[in-house]
Write a protein that binds this DNA or RNA. Structure first.
Ligand SMILES: [Mn+2]
Ligand SMILES: [Mn+2]
Ligand SMILES: [Zn+2]
Ligand SMILES: [Zn+2]
Lengths: 130, 130
DNA sequence: TAAGCGAATGATAATCGTTCTCATTATACT
DNA sequence: AGTATAATGAGAACGATTATCATTCGCTTA
């Protein structure tokens, strides 16, 4: 068997914190939360996140500033993001859920998760003409 | 009128190079190409890209390493990306093109472009068990 | 239970894409 | 031409992520 049945202590801790949150966290935010509970290094947080992604347990997406945000793979949330003010507006449902299942059959690739995001200008920003 | 009809020299140059390429370029790669043609600063390249995005002429997405890749908004290409080896496999068509048009009517938001990417493990990497 | 060994860890330095600063120059408008 | 504003280039600064390395942990085996 390639993987041990249990996750190492810190990987489990990272996964636990992510699962408790309702919104994605950056590695640094995660580090901030975890260090209140136990001694942990920042590098360990990054390493845990990387491994959890490879195990198909965690997903990540890059926010507008390029920083990576992490969440459990079960979370399937997408946003409209304004290029002007940076605000994000959540979509009420995922439009590519069935598509992902179809893909599984048509490509030689094990899909773990997807990212989908729309970019443009939000209502308030359209009014405030530049 | 909020915008001048002509783009500043360097914004135009950036857009020209992007349009000539068939694949997305990073800001640094763009800088490398442009400096062979003219005197230009790296900061100017970043500034031009930012402005072109706001004008709805250029889109960007983050690659696996977090680096931003830029292309004309007309380009509508998506990938399956392997979390193990980092290789990307292009999708043969965009699955959310109609969806984007529908969105325009259902939300107070001017959509310029979208990003969509699938992540998982590619065939060769599945075989090479860890 | 003690020894051995590879994986995991924490501290910290290094990396590198991106942004900021600021003095200079090009451009638009009168 | 003269002035106001936007654009620009060089380089410093920033900050998220990664690499390094010595130490510790967890598990297997004798
Ligand atoms: Mn989804
Ligand atoms: Mn598309
Ligand atoms: Zn906005
Ligand atoms: Zn692969």
């Amino acid at each position: 068997m390639p993987y041990p049945s249990r996750l190492p202590r810190n990987q489990q801790a990272v996964l636990d914190v992510l699962s408790q949150q309702s919104h994605p966290l950056s590695a640094q935010e995660l580090y901030g939360v975890l260090r209140q509970q136990q001694l942990i290094g920042l590098a360990t947080v990054y390493r845990a996140l990387e491994t959890l992604k490879l195990r198909g347990l965690v997903q990540s997406r890059a926010d507008t500033s390029g920083e990576s945000l992490y969440s459990p793979v079960e979370q399937d949330q997408h946003y409209l993001t304004c290029l002007q003010c940076g605000r994000s507006f959540p979509l009420d449902r995922c439009p590519v859920q069935e598509l992902e299942e179809h893909l599984q059959y048509s490509v030689p690739f094990k899909v773990y998760y997807h990212t989908l995001e729309f970019f443009g200008i939000c209502e308030p920003c359209i009014e405030s003409v530049d």
